[in-house]
C-alpha cells in the first residue's frame, strides 16, 4: 500500500523474515516501512474481537502497529528500525 520514492537513496538491501516469507529492507527503514512497502497492511489483531489493525498515527502513540519479535516481545513497527536477521510475526 506504500511505495518507496526512487529519489531517496537506499543502501544495500537485506532480508527480514516476516511470518513465513522474506521481505526486502534497507538500513534506516522502520519495520512499518518494510511491511507497508510489501503491501502488508495488517500488523496486529485487536484484543477482544480479533479485528485487523495497522499503521495509524506513525509517531509511536497509538500502538496499533504492534508486531511480535522472535523473543515474543511486542514492538511498535513505526518506531523500530529493521535489522538483518530479524524475525517478526504480524497479526498476533
Amino acid at each position: 500500500m506504500m511505495k518507496r520514492l526512487k529519489q531517496v537513496k537506499r543502501g544495500e538491501p537485506f532480508n527480514i523474515q516476516v511470518d513465513n516469507e522474506f521481505l526486502t529492507a534497507y538500513h534506516g527503514e522502520t519495520l512499518a516501512t518494510v511491511l507497508l512497502s510489501a503491501g502488508k497492511k495488517i500488523m496486529r489483531k485487536s484484543l477482544k474481537n480479533k479485528n485487523p489493525r495497522g499503521y495509524y498515527c506513525g509517531m509511536g502513540i497509538c500502538n496499533e502497529c504492534l508486531v511480535k519479535l522472535e523473543d515474543e516481545t511486542r514492538v511498535r513497527a513505526c518506531q523500530t528500525l529493521a535489522e538483518p536477521s530479524m524475525k517478526i510475526k504480524t497479526g498476533a
Partner: peptide, 8 residues
C-alpha cells in the same frame, strides 16, 4: 488498516 492520520 489503510485508514491513517495525515501526520502519519
Amino acid at each position: 488498516p489503510g485508514v491513517i492520520t495525515l501526520g502519519g
